[in-house]
Amino acid sequence: MKRFWAWGALIIGLLYFILPLIGMTNFSLKMRRGVYSFDAYAKVLADTRFQETFTYSVTLALLTILVGVFLVVPTAYWVRLKLPFLRPYVEFVTLLPLVIPAIVVVFGYIRLYNTSSWLPLTGTALGTDVLLVAGYTMLALPYMYRAVDTGLRTIDVTTLTEAAQSLGAGWFTIITRIILPNVLVAVLSGAFLTFAIVIGEFTMAALLNRPAFGPYMQVLGANRAYEPAALAVIAFAITWGCLGLIQLVSRFQKSAQRPV
């Protein structure tokens, strides 16, 4: 009886999650009347706006990953090594972006860094891009920090550092040659997740008025019928790809850690 209910619930759950995916896929293939075709995809992929915004978002995602890694890895390492009493506070700060809505943060950016302020970042395209990357870094911070901190927990930071120091290594060498390789899988997991978050992000990009993929999708959605569904399928595939890569690298680590 218990099994029956469990299975029943599972099937309803599966339907709930699969039907929208079938729905969007189905819709995306129906552009040509009466037959299934890839017309919507062809149309989307050929759109120069798509190519521009997609390239822009990928670039920003990569920059965000870079900034995030260089911000989070040394900090998490340093806190674990030298300032362990600060750990709960730093953790609290990294969780704040989950609590403060992104739309509030970006509103703050617009008011704080406008053209008449002390740091007029929104005055130029480049400045706005810097602001957007900073905002994305904040959005990804909870995930990135947790991934890296969990990765650091599995290695003995203090012993590794002291061993490296006793061999004459400096801080730069320690972080780039000892710590980073050891938490590489954690960093990669955080990076892929960051990529998945940034690539389709809408709110910050729209309000900062940058030509990103998220706003492009939204505009297309308001004006077209079949292309948005094709975009949704593409976006879903990207998300799935990022999460799949996370699985892949963590499996790789497991096999690498197996005793020889």
Partner: peptide
């Protein structure tokens, strides 16, 4: 976000 909304519009 946006793609999720599209998926639900295409379904319901």
């Amino acid at each position: 976000g946006v793609p999720l909304a599209f998926a639900f519009l295409a379904t319901l």
